[in-house]
Design a protein around this nucleic acid. Structure first.
Length: 290
DNA sequence: GGTCAGGTTCCGA
DNA sequence: TCGGAACCTGAC
């Protein structure tokens, strides 16, 4: 296995946090790196912190850079955040090199359809089972990984077979989405042409996709950095730390959403990920025992 | 063995 | 429009 090298220069990345913080579900941590399929290429990557370089195998440099969002200037993004926000600053200091990945849209949509009422380890397990049963295998060195099954592959598998992968009631939603996309009735590429709100509405037309999942897909699968998914963690953060007077207990979701978009700005999704990651790892500190 | 989970849909008021 | 129940499954 030939290892390539990508010199990061001044660019920061916390590779482990980026790959395991709950935005992507396919990476397996090794003693010295991480492996997964990017599309249908098996990729292995590790971060040499002393030299601030990535060593990788299985794909070309541009593919890896794009996937990890290394072509975006984090400093510029952070500069658009509210400058005097100590909560956000604390969250960013906790994981300074956390980046958003650019996932293939279908893979992202399908993963998040299976995510409702699930914790990260379980979503991951479902994702890996689907890959192994219905996806194509590929190899990097001695490691075998699997591409995410295409809409056609999942559509052919059918709802019952998906149910046997532990999806429960989510099997129906995933099967329906796979059917509609495989048949061409629903186009994922057309989402690119729609502005934020319309893109979100279009995704919500899929069964099992509500506002939260649509926002996740826009943020992680379409690189729409203004998308701001509000899950239970982010909701707790917003209510605890950002709610205007009188809204601490009851803050209607649309108002909360509008507040976040305006307050955090054009890269609100990045702020969301820092807050989300920090909150998940400091729930006792932030919220007490609830 | 009961409770609960990073959500959406459906139903009734 | 709004609140609450139901939905499958695995982890604690």
């Amino acid at each position: 296995m030939k290892l390539h090298r990508l010199d990061l220069g001044e660019r920061q990345i916390d590779l482990a946090a980026t790959l395991h913080c709950g935005q992507v579900f396919q990476w397996t941590a090794l003693e010295d790196g991480h492996v997964a399929a990017l599309g249908d290429q098996a990729v292995r990557v590790a971060h040499d912190k002393n030299e601030n370089a990535l060593s990788y195998a299985g794909c070309d440099e541009a593919t890896l850079e794009r996937y990890l969002g290394l072509d975006l200037d984090l400093e510029e993004i952070i500069a658009t955040f509210p400058s005097k926000d100590t909560h956000l600053a604390t969250a960013m200091n906790y994981t300074p090199g956390l980046r958003l990945c650019r996932q293939p849209a279908w893979e992202c949509l399908a993963s998040f359809i299976t995510s409702s009422l699930k914790q990260v380890p379980h979503i991951r397990k479902i994702s890996l089972t689907l890959r192994e049963r219905f996806g194509k295998s590929c190899q990097v060195g001695e490691h075998t990984v699997w591409a995410y099954p295409t809409p056609a592959e999942l559509s052919a598998a059918g709802e019952e077979a998906l149910r046997e992968c532990g999806l429960g009631y989510r099997a129906k939603s995933l099967a329906l989405a796979a059917d509609r996309i495989a048949s061409g009735e629903f186009s994922l590429s057309e989402i690119d042409d729609l502005e934020g709100g319309q893109a979100r509405d279009r995704l919500c037309e899929l069964h099992g996709v509500g506002e939260k999942i649509a926002d996740c897909v826009l943020l992680f699968g379409y690189g729409r950095l203004a998308a701001f998914p509000i899950d239970v963690w982010v909701e707790r953060v917003l209510k605890h730390l950002y709610a205007p007077r009188g809204k601490k207990r009851k803050w209607p979701r649309p108002e909360m959403q509008a507040y976040a978009a305006k307050y955090f700005g054009p890269h609100a999704g990045y702020a969301q990920q820092y807050l989300f990651h920090y909150a998940r790892n400091h729930d006792k500190v932030l919220f007490g025992d609830r």
